[in-house]
């Protein structure tokens, strides 16, 4: 039948056209899933370690000399940017790729380095629609095409290989699983 041929053509062309988008949204979707459950931060690599040998100090004493001493101990003298007192008892020293937090009362300190996670940062940037503006329309087009591809895929084959055969069972399973989760968790 002619409409079936056209349907197959449309499904194929959309599949080619949005191959890249499917990969971007699929891979970043996995990252997003695990970001929500706090397994890891998909956009940044964060590492913290304790610094030893930092003396306690009053806020009034914690001037440039004190900060210089800390960044020297941390081996981050070249990366020093600025400092800030979040509270009277704590000092935050900003570095190019991270920061040092000092408890002024005890001298307990830790250094955190923060780097952008390559590839995932870029695909998440797109998945979260951070470019906004025109990306919104393009990603809308992709989303709409996904619906078209889902429907065209459903009616692509005839007989036992089609929706009237085993296909309907898989469709029912695919709809039932999210429904079960909604019933249980919503």
């Amino acid at each position: 039948m002619k409409w079936r041929k056209r349907n197959r053509w449309l499904h194929r062309k959309l599949g080619y056209m949005f191959f890249g988008m499917a990969i971007i949204y699929g891979v970043s979707g996995i990252a997003l899933n695990h970001h929500i459950t706090r397994h890891w931060n998909p956009s940044h690599i964060e590492r913290s370690e304790t610094l030893v040998g930092i003396e306690p100090a009053d806020r009034s004493e914690a001037g440039k000399e004190y900060i210089n001493e800390i960044v020297t101990i941390a081996g981050e003298k070249e990366n020093y940017k600025s400092y800030y007192f979040p509270t009277d008892q704590s000092l935050m020293i900003y570095l190019k790729d991270g920061h040092i937090i000092v408890d002024l009362e005890t001298g307990e300190s830790s250094i955190t380095t923060l780097k952008n996670r390559k590839f995932f940062r870029e695909i998440n940037f797109l998945h979260y629609n951070k470019p906004k503006q025109l990306w919104t329309y393009f990603s809308d087009l992709f989303a709409f095409s996904l619906v078209i591809m889902a429907i065209s895929g459903l009616i692509m084959n005839r007989g036992k290989k089609g929706i009237k055969g085993s296909g309907i069972i898989l469709v029912i399973i695919g709809i039932t699983i999210p429904l079960i989760f909604l019933i249980i968790y919503l």
């Binding site: 940044h44 940017k81 600025s82 400092y83 800030y84 007192f85 900003y94 570095l95 190019k96 790729d97 920061h99 923060l114 952008n116 940037f125 951070k130 470019p131 906004k132 503006q133």
Partner: peptide, 23 residues
């Protein structure tokens, strides 16, 4: 360091990079 202000992005700014901290 006593006055803080919250800044949010608008439609023309995608995001603030974390490397801005301290700048």
């Amino acid at each position: 360091q006593e006055n803080n202000l919250l800044i949010r992005v608008s439609g023309s700014i995608p995001e603030f990079d974390v490397t801005l901290e301290g700048s």
